[in-house]
């Protein structure tokens, strides 16, 4: 097996709701190796989003250990978490989350700015990433001049820009029609074949099937499903 890049042990996440604690993740274990394409499949309310937040270092677990790229994420400051996100995680959101005032290229440059990449290099890298997702013709277009599929491609280029350890996608086809959704999923497959590790959160079994491995999440517990639907 190749290198372990994500290792979660007994992750518990609980929120305080009024007087009682609500446990959302109940001792989750997950190991991801480099180059995997894994779907986390679950209905709404299963703890999917919390799972994604913790994987994406947007949130820290209540207890348990989380190693990402060999580093313990469990007790890091906001500032350190920001740095880890910048280096390790490439986010892809359901609603693309592009800044409307910026061109496609500027949107892709955004994570590079926060990673302190110098301007010249930023431009080159952003253009390279946009070429990779097939948008070399649309670099200076604003998001509202692009179709939904194109916007999600820009978002993917942005996620790839810092060459992150994990591409973390949250319902990446949720806002797309079926045909474009398919195209985007094929792009994911390509990227995975090029060696990118992808973790995708979804409620849609058909989308989840694009992954090599499916993990089911239900009521805060993780089950390894029948692997390799595809």
């Amino acid at each position: 097996m190749s290198e372990t890049i994500l290792d979660m042990k007994d992750i518990v996440k609980s929120y305080r709701m009024g007087d009682e604690d609500q446990v959302v993740l109940k001792g989750v274990n997950l190991v991801v190796h480099k180059g995997e394409f894994i779907s986390i499949l679950g209905p709404s309310g299963s703890g999917k989003s919390t799972m994604m937040n913790i994987i994406g270092c947007l949130d820290t677990p209540t207890s348990g250990t989380y190693l990402l790229g060999g580093r313990n994420i469990t007790d890091q400051s906001q500032k350190q978490l920001a740095r880890i996100r910048s280096k390790e995680i490439g986010f892809i959101f359901q609603s693309f989350q592009l800044l409307p005032r910026l061109s496609a290229r500027e949107n892709v440059e955004l994570p590079l700015i926060y990673a302190h990449v110098p301007p010249q290099e930023r431009k080159i890298r952003a253009e390279e990433m946009l070429k990779k997702v097939g948008l070399e013709e649309k670099m200076n277009h604003r998001p509202n001049q692009l179709s939904g599929g194109q916007q999600q491609r820009v978002a993917i280029a942005r996620a790839l820009a810092n060459n992150p350890t994990i591409l973390l996608a949250d319902e990446p086809t949720g806002a797309l029609d079926q045909k474009t959704g398919k195209q985007v999923m094929n792009l994911f497959k390509e990227l995975n074949q090029e060696g990118n590790t992808i973790i995708m959160i979804t409620h849609d079994i058909n989308i989840a099937k694009y992954a090599n491995r499916i993990v089911n999440i239900l009521d805060g517990n993780l089950f390894e499903g029948d692997v390799n639907y595809a």
Binding site: L58, Q78, K79, A82, K87, F93, P111, Y114
Partner: peptide, 16 residues
Amino acid sequence: TTEIGLRKALGAEPGS
């Protein structure tokens, strides 16, 4: 708010 959240997800430190 969303833009701030996005920037943070993309690695912006609180100070920035």
